[in-house]
């Protein structure tokens, strides 16, 4: 089946390998620690892409639930790196505006903002900024735990900038 939407998905090794090699055994799906929260199993997402349902694949919750733990990748009998496949789909979805109402893309944007500005990140600042962008109330929930970290001396908001930020720009 040739899809009208092939332009929505990047032409990368991770995508091609999944399309060409998958034997649809479901090992990836059953290995995934977050499978029961997914709307389609990872195997089904591979099948969607293979059969040209690109639009549908980029709309799944599944791709945003992948934490890239690579358990699927090391088990896959066709040696497909499904973690990389999911990353490629995330990238394609983000590029084509498929994910505006999802939290994960917001997190990545915030993360990238820090890197582009400082060359490094600070987890506490990342968390705060991300929460402010999405649901500020969450910050309240974090207070008790933050206090614990503060007591243990593992909480710090300082962030050093690398000397020449241009060195990480293409």
């Amino acid at each position: 089946m040739v899809s009208q939407n092939n332009h929505l998905i990047e032409d990368s090794y991770a995508i091609r390998a999944a399309i060409e090699k998958c034997i649809q055994c479901g090992t990836c799906s059953a290995s995934c620690p977050l499978n029961n929260y997914m709307d389609y199993t990872p195997r089904q997402v591979v099948l969607m892409v293979r059969e040209g349902f690109i639009h549908e694949a980029l709309k799944t919750k599944t791709i945003w639930l992948c934490s890239t733990c690579y358990l699927c990748a090391v088990r896959c009998p066709a040696k497909i790196n499904i973690g990389e496949f999911m990353t490629a789909l995330k990238r394609s979805a983000l590029k084509n505006g498929y994910s505006n109402n999802q939290l994960y893309p917001k997190l990545m944007e915030t993360y990238a903002e820090y890197i582009n500005k400082y060359g490094r990140i600070s987890e506490p600042r990342l968390m705060i900024k991300f929460s402010l962008k999405t649901s500020p109330f969450k910050l309240l929930k974090m207070i008790p735990f933050s206090m614990k970290l503060l007591r243990e001396g593992t909480l710090s908001f300082s962030l050093e900038k690398i000397q020449n930020i241009e060195e990480i720009k293409i």
Partner: peptide, 19 residues
């Protein structure tokens, strides 16, 4: 579907996980 893993439950049964 191919079995992804087998684990053992407390009562000694084998839990086979697959899609």
């Amino acid at each position: 579907g191919k079995a992804a893993e087998i684990t053992e439950s407390d009562n000694g049964k084998l839990i086979v996980t697959f899609e």
